[in-house]
Design a binder for these strands. Sequence first.
DNA 1: TTGAAAGCGATACCAG
DNA 2: CTGGTATCGCTTTCAA
Lengths: 373, 373
Amino acid sequence: MGQGRRHGPTIRDVAAEAGVSKSLVSMVFNEDPRVSDVRRRLVLDAAQRLGFSPNWMARSLAAGDGDFVGVMVPDLANPIFAEILEGIRTELRDAGQRTLVSSALFTDAGGNREFDDRVLTVLRDMRPSSLVVIGSVPSLDVVQPLMQRVPTVVASGTADDLDHVCVVRNDDVIGIDLIVDHLVERGHRRIAHVGGSGGGAAVNRRDAYESAMRRHRLAEHIEVELSDYTTERAIEATRRLLMRPGGSTTGAAIKTQVLHPDDGHPAAIETRALRPVGERPTAIVAVNDLAALGVITAAEQLGLRVPGDVAVTGYDDTALSGIDRISLTTVDPRNAEIARETVRLLLDADGPFEGHRERLVIPRLVVRGSTAV
Amino acid sequence: MGQGRRHGPTIRDVAAEAGVSKSLVSMVFNEDPRVSDVRRRLVLDAAQRLGFSPNWMARSLAAGDGDFVGVMVPDLANPIFAEILEGIRTELRDAGQRTLVSSALFTDAGGNREFDDRVLTVLRDMRPSSLVVIGSVPSLDVVQPLMQRVPTVVASGTADDLDHVCVVRNDDVIGIDLIVDHLVERGHRRIAHVGGSGGGAAVNRRDAYESAMRRHRLAEHIEVELSDYTTERAIEATRRLLMRPGGSTTGAAIKTQVLHPDDGHPAAIETRALRPVGERPTAIVAVNDLAALGVITAAEQLGLRVPGDVAVTGYDDTALSGIDRISLTTVDPRNAEIARETVRLLLDADGPFEGHRERLVIPRLVVRGSTAV
DNA sequence: TTGAAAGCGATACCAG
DNA sequence: CTGGTATCGCTTTCAA
């Protein structure tokens, strides 16, 4: 029977306890200005006594609006998204807004990362008053119905051509320009790029790299070795980049120690051909910090010194790059600013966005040891 | 009026479209075995045509049970929690369970990390059929009412004395034992510890360190310098540990370059007193990888080589420790196993847990360069 | 089997 | 300010 008070007190209980009507209780918890202070205290005390707190589901269901900002972070593994998340959450809280954040990624049997669209379903049903997506979502069209109803902003991700969305991200063109300018200034001419694959920012950065090179009249030295955002792919790409194509023995033959991944001891000695100094890039621009790490690792395994023989740059200014032993020159995308702008847009909006807008934050160069002269 | 189809199709629409009653539609979506195949197809087709999907809130509200596992991750900034989360999500999915994960932390104006208990409210209202907390929550008592209703497990965190909870974590005593045994085996006797503060695992690990030292009859060399899990605190602790107390000049005077955090260039030269070799620890056990990084950084800034002058160990086996330039000997807490065990407990439970249980996973030593001989 | 009616917990509108 | 009533979208008896 309904007697079993299985789920805590309801407004009816509070109303009874306070000796008022259920409507009054509802109004009190909705901060309706029309209730008298006396009544308010009466209700609040009763609620306190009963340990009552309004049921959020029932509220959204009835009101047709959950009155909170829904935040989706597909990829929690990426520390920069966690950073942006905290920024947004903080800004939102300062603005007196409630937030509900949810993750949506999992790894399947094959080790592939998949997207759980049920999370979107829940979010939709909860009727958030606005939506934030941090990073890129595999299939943003699942959110499409939601985006048409509430203002939606994608922070630090891409959502090409998608309507009713505002994208806030750092300006990759400026960031890469800063990097290339810096390298050129330090005397580099043979500047290569490791990246270009993995979607979103990767393409922007690759294009920006090529433009910057042309701007410096270094078009002939443009060289892109494909890699995604991971250290592993970057290691492979860098090996391709630094060694003679096809492993030919024309270049200077060098010994390379391949370290065993588990114990750090030499597992094998490779003798392969490095590209000769005159043909080899003296600087490598990686698509992000993680990839830059791969570049450094690969270069050093090939016996090259960083930055002595080859300079390396990253992107994102993750905690990693600030470590003494890494000391990576990189670009700070200014995530705090991205978070701030995201929240500002959300608060200013009083309805779904029209068309597709973009808001670019100006990044900043962070010079460290990996490009020292 | 209600005509504005503001929120997508409902079961009523589907019922009308299919020419059946709303109840039937509900039963179909709840996989009630009593509906005939003909009717089922009829309903399913109609739903398909209308793009209908059942509203999760309304369902939880009416059914009094959301039929999903609620996962809370207070601290998304820590990569090991993200790792466990993905593991749990994957296991749960393989078991055919829906998951809703939510974060609950934000940084306030003062830079302190605060806990947003409203998230717990939502979770409670959604009526999850079970609950997972990844890591430690500041105030677990907020969840208390929930824990009494549904099976709750804390993965990789602590919840001392808390009732109706099962804790799954790695066995810190075994982990630290492995570390200390390894160091002793490599000839170290003056082994110090950096950690002990920050709650939860920190205390366990400190105690385990002291026990292990005593077991090896090295009680006289026990030395703990307080630090939490962060690189910054660890740097400070390590400086205290390696320098003469009070900055006296009795020890060998050495020059230390303090690098400017922004550009990696020397900002100042400190001349302070290092503890003499005979008194200084030859190995430092850090509470976790991040702290170990601080230990390495501080040691090297003081002119010591790692592992040449001092060996360093971490804990957690984060991606960081595997990097060539870091190559940190550490302990793998076997997060995948923790995730697996967590889900197993949840699925086996058919009601809230009784008392306070703990499930310990046996960790594994990962030897790398930072303790090389 | 199926369909009608009574909630789940709260909001919203209405006349009193 | 008050109650009563309709509603939100779905589940769940319980007759038919």
